[in-house]
Structure formats: C-alpha cells, structure tokens
Amino acid sequence: MRTRWLWLLPLLLLAWPAQALRCHQCSATHDCLQPTACQANTHYCLTTWNSPPGQRTNIIKACAYTCPGFQESLAYSRASCCNTDLCNSAPHARVSWGLLALSLWCVCLSR
C-alpha cells in the first residue's frame, strides 16, 4: 500500500500548475516597483533605458517573450533581461573602480 502512495507523489507534482513569471512593470522615470504576474508563455523580465541627448532617461520595465539582442538596440537605448521572479527590481549596477581597488587592497592586507 505504501508503494502506491510513493508513485502518486511524482504524478501530483507533475500535475501541479506552474506559476507565471512575476516582473516589475512601469513606463515612467519613477516608481518602477510594481510586481505583475506575466502571461504563461512569457520567459523574461525586460528593463530598457532610453536616454535621448538633452532629455531625462526613461526606464521601462515589462514582461517579454524574447530578449532583444545587440542588433535590436537603438543608439540611445540599452536593454537588460533576466528570467527569475522580480529580477528586474534592482537598478543597473555600474562598476565602481574605487570600491574594486579598496577590495583588492583589503585582500592583500589580510594575507
């Protein structure tokens, strides 16, 4: 009897409905932390930065079916994709050379 229940568990797990990807969505320069459940066949959370010369940077966050490639980017626009829940919440991180140098210095001192 116990082995019958062990066979039932994998079947129940396979039948469990998959959860849709959740991404932040906005099309403004502020308040871009609005979680939204994407459609079932959506695979990416997309963040784009549009920076025309002399204008404010406009950030757009949305669910996406595909991730745009290098050929699809425009002169004043960048895009970033990720594929886990709410992964497009953090702002785009830039390398801080000073922080990197400080970290290396601390590693050298600790030896």
Rank of each mutant, 00 (worst) to 15 (best):
I59N: 01
L12V: 13
A20Q: 06
Q34A: 09
Y76F: 14
Q19V: 07
H43E: 04
T47D: 02
T47Y: 06
W105A: 12
C63V: 08
R2K: 10
C63F: 09
A79C: 09
F70D: 08
G69M: 03
L6Q: 11
A28T: 12
S27A: 07
N88K: 03
K61S: 03
S103D: 05
A62C: 04
C82F: 00
S73F: 01
W97D: 10
C38D: 08
L9D: 06
S89K: 15
T29L: 09
A64E: 03
G54S: 06
S27T: 09
C63A: 11
Q34D: 12
L12I: 08
A37T: 14
Q39S: 10
R56S: 13
Y65T: 06
T84M: 11
Q55C: 01
P10E: 04
S110D: 05
W5P: 00
Q39H: 09
C45H: 07
C87F: 01
N58S: 01
V107W: 15
N58K: 12
L46C: 02
F70R: 15
L74R: 14
R56T: 08
W5E: 07
D31K: 12
T48G: 07
Y65L: 01
Q55P: 00
Y44M: 04
T42P: 00
W105M: 11
W97M: 10
H43S: 07
A40E: 02
S51K: 15
L102E: 09
L86V: 08
L100D: 00
C108W: 15
C38W: 04
R78A: 05
P68N: 10
A15L: 09
A90P: 00
N41A: 13
N88S: 03
H30G: 07
C87Y: 02
I59M: 13
S96Q: 10
S77G: 07
E72R: 14
R78G: 00
V95R: 10
R2W: 14
G69W: 15
A101L: 13
S89W: 11
L14D: 06
S103V: 14
V107K: 15
T42C: 02
S89H: 13
L104D: 01
C87D: 03
K61F: 00
T3L: 14
W105H: 09
V95T: 07
C106D: 06
A20T: 09
